[in-house]
């Protein structure tokens, strides 16, 4: 049983190498404070917050860093009256 398991094993080092390469490529950039994905995340959230009052609990941000491509998914629940309130507040400011 043990021998069988020993022979059926695939080497894991290539996987370790690949994971480290991707991770370190991203981390080296991040230390220069120009991690694009994080920057985009922050700016997108800032832009939306300017127009809508965002409830922190209603925001899901997912990132997946890859060798060739990274993905960023920002999922925000925008309640119907949130936009209205913000607009009203803006109007009141103008009026005052």
């Amino acid at each position: 049983m043990n021998l069988l398991r020993l022979f059926s094993r695939t080497p894991t080092a290539p996987s370790a190498r690949e994971r480290l390469q991707v991770l370190l490529a991203h981390e080296r950039v991040a230390f220069g404070d120009s991690d694009l994905v994080s920057k985009l995340r922050d700016e997108i959230l800032a832009v939306i917050a300017r127009h809508v009052q965002i409830d922190g609990d209603k925001v899901t941000v997912k990132m997946e860093r890859g060798a060739q491509m990274s993905t960023l998914a920002v999922d925000i629940e925008i309640p119907f009256d949130a936009t209205k309130k913000k607009l009203d507040a803006a109007k009141n400011k103008k009026a005052a």
């Binding site: 922190g56 997912k62 990132m63 997946e64 860093r65």
Partner: peptide, 26 residues
Amino acid sequence: DLVMGAERRVVYDLVNVIQGEAKLTQ
């Protein structure tokens, strides 16, 4: 994160939460 295989999916961290920059659930 690396040992658990989630290193590519880190969005926010403990310090972000403590500094109020992200919610714990995020």
